[in-house]
Write a protein that binds this DNA or RNA. Structure first.
Lengths: 220, 220
DNA sequence: TGGTGACTGTAAGGTTGTTGTAAGCTAAGG
DNA sequence: CCTTAGCTTACAACAACCTTACAGTCACCA
């Protein structure tokens, strides 16, 4: 899962990013409207957190431009306490949810969770694929009932694959979704990572499609 | 457990806060309706004690606004003796319980206890996780029958974890729930605290999920 | 008032798990 | 049987976490 955090206050941006990272997201930040508009239009994110009051370009106009270009990613806007009109126009401009600053990080996480789930078309917080289960709320993975001890990154990989079970996911896509954007792509991290996960899962769940990518078998 | 005390009489507020603190809560106070509405909407509490007669904004309207925004935290309202109509409207507005002033502190504590327990979905006042037991009424913890000598903070940590056993709880969440809101987040308090608790519990009960948080093992 | 002891936050240094890199190896597919 | 994509392993660097000692604070008591 990749998230974009647009917030000019770097400290706040950092806090949000950190929280999201802890919850299994790979986060990119940007700090003004111009940058936000560009990045949001060129990169692919699973969710965006967008502050409305931004330098260079207003968050609302950025958002409506995204939508005009057909970008459907879930967007949560952040507004100040007493500018409820912003919220209304924000929702009209295509925001999926809003939060009033200052807010609890947990609140943000919960809404992010809910949105991502909704946009993936899953109702509950438990993802399953055959004997594999993943509770995104408690961040635990189980295989046929027994708990799996996964590292943060391994968990992210599995979560991503389970969100698209039976689909072939290329290594490039995986790198894009698991890492920050400034990551250099020419290495075998993904292969190594898949290897580590397979050691814990058994080899059957994640299949390799040579030249195309990996896929998670939904009925194993 | 975090509690919010809304009461304009500062002395009373102080008394209540004190009692709750002694019972293992981290307490925030506020003294008028405006503030209450805002804080209750932005921070996350496990319970709120809400006086009805408040300056700036009436407690009942604050409460119904909280509920309108989907805030489901348990709320106990405080009313004067002869204003029974307030109580009715209060309960309608979404209060979970009420108390008539003046009241016994113990009475308040008992109801707070009961509500928190109910909202966590536990019937009795004893939480258990494997060989660990925690009696929230008497505030005592036992490990395989023998009493554990925990400090107030240590008790709170354990209580919080036991309320979410087998779930990964991030350090950020812990800081938010164990401390007042004005606490600076960049220190290793939680690590130190966990260390202290582990020394008394043994190391197996609280596991660390590196990069994600801690979790209390339900069957140890 | 001043002493005592428990409780907590801070800081510093040690330890350990995670993760990217690189190098050699396997096997798919022509 | 050769090429190439992917597998596997070992290793080093780093961040996350642990541990400890210390100092400030507070309540309690003489």
């Amino acid at each position: 899962m990749r998230a974009l955090v647009v917030e000019d206050n770097t400290q706040a941006a950092e806090q949000i990013s950190h929280a999201l990272t802890e919850h299994g997201f790979a986060v990119d930040q940007c700090h003004d409207g111009e940058e936000a508009w560009f990045i949001g239009d060129t990169e692919e994110y699973d969710i965006a957190i967008l502050d409305i009051g931004l330098p260079k370009r207003d968050g609302l106009s950025v958002l409506s431009d995204w939508r005009r270009n057909g970008n459907k990613m879930p967007v949560i806007i952040l507004t100040a306490r007493d500018t409820w009109r912003e919220r209304v126009t924000g929702l009209r401009a295509g925001a999926d949810d809003y939060l009033i600053k200052p807010f609890e990080m947990e609140e943000l996480l919960a809404r992010v969770e809910a949105l991502v789930r909704r946009s993936n078309g899953h109702a509950s917080s438990v993802l399953s694929a055959g004997s594999l289960q993943l509770d995104t709320a408690t961040q635990r993975a189980t295989l046929a009932g027994t708990h799996l001890d996964l590292s943060a990154l391994e968990y992210r990989l599995l979560a991503y694959l389970m969100n698209r079970q039976n689909q072939v996911v290329s290594k490039a896509t995986l790198t894009e979704h698991l890492y920050q954007m400034d990551f250099e792509h020419n290495s075998n991290v993904i292969e190594v990572l898949v290897n580590r996960v397979r050691k814990k899962l058994g080899t059957t769940h994640i299949q390799t499609r040579r030249g195309q990518g990996y896929l998670l078998n939904a009925d194993e």
